[in-house]
């Protein structure tokens, strides 16, 4: 079982896709890694030999921020916005979109499921 970046053990899938189970690695980064290490992207993760796994692990450790470290970095960035009382920080605190999207409608990703307010139907005041 290949172990890359801590405890991630994706197997049976082509390594290009197996790598994407790691938080912080998507299509592009996966391709970058495999190009740098000269490994066939279609090769199944389980069939990689020792040196290939070490090559990938080494590359990841040396060049990328993944998993816990990445999550920490992200939340620190958000925390910084909150601490400086910036507009974006306020938006994060309120759970609203912070890149200027409309909130009159939509924005459900940030606001979560619709909260229906009684008596809001019909003509407005």
């Amino acid at each position: 079982m290949p172990r890359i970046a801590g405890i991630d053990v994706p197997e049976r899938k082509p390594i290009r896709y197996a790598l994407q189970y790691i938080h912080g690695i998507g299509e592009k980064i996966a391709d970058d890694i495999l190009r740098e290490t000269n490994i066939d992207p279609a090769k199944r993760a389980g069939t990689l030999n020792e040196s290939e796994v070490t090559a990938i692990a080494g590359f990841v450790d040396a060049n990328l921020i993944v998993e816990g470290a990445l999550r920490r970095q992200t939340s620190q960035n958000i925390q910084r916005l909150k601490d400086t009382r910036s507009y974006r920080g306020e938006r994060h605190r309120k759970g609203l979109p912070c890149r200027g999207q409309r909130t009159r409608t939509n924005a459900r990703t940030r606001k979560g499921r619709k909260k229906t307010v009684a008596g809001k139907k019909g003509v407005k005041g």
């Binding site: 910084r80 601490d83 400086t84 009382r85 910036s86 507009y87 974006r88 306020e90």
Partner: peptide, 15 residues
């Protein structure tokens, strides 16, 4: 202004 604010605009901190 603190160090963390560098790179932002002044308006971002005046709601």
């Amino acid at each position: 202004v603190t160090e963390d604010m560098v790179g932002h605009k002044l308006g971002e901190f005046s709601h």
